[in-house]
């Protein structure tokens, strides 16, 4: 298998990551594990330094695996996406509540 290592020269990227189907599935799996762990400790924004300590205490292994199995740019993307998805679901919930209240008033 020929693979041109894109990130070998870059200091901030993950050298272990190879962009193929197997590696992608491994990355998504460890992402889900990590996020499940964050759910348990009620952390939504894992990029916030305030949560760092809590994450290190409870989800250290999951975080390590996630960082190992995914490209660095993907890790940031998934963490941001978790935040956006959460906000969107919150907005949806608020809208739904509002709609229900309006129905009751009617």
């Amino acid at each position: 298998m020929v693979w041109i290592p894109f990130f070998s020269n870059s200091s901030d990227s993950n050298k272990d990551f190879e962009n193929n189907r197997k590696q992608r599935e491994l990355c998504w799996e460890s992402r889900d594990d990590f996020f499940n762990c964050l759910d348990k400790i009620n952390v939504i924004n894992s990029l916030d330094p305030k949560n760092e300590k809590l994450i290190n205490q409870n989800c250290k292994d999951e975080s390590k695996k996630f960082n190992k199995n995914c490209a660095t740019s993907w890790i940031n993307y998934f963490k941001q996406k978790r935040l956006i998805d959460f906000r969107n679901s919150q907005i949806d919930r608020e809208l739904e509540l509002k709609r229900q209240q309006e129905q009751i008033q009617d």
């Binding site: 894109f6 020269n9 870059s10 990227s13 490209a71 740019s73 993307y77």
Partner: peptide, 8 residues
């Protein structure tokens, strides 16, 4: 961008 950079 350089091909070796990690970006989306």
């Amino acid at each position: 961008v350089r091909p070796d950079q990690d970006y989306l």
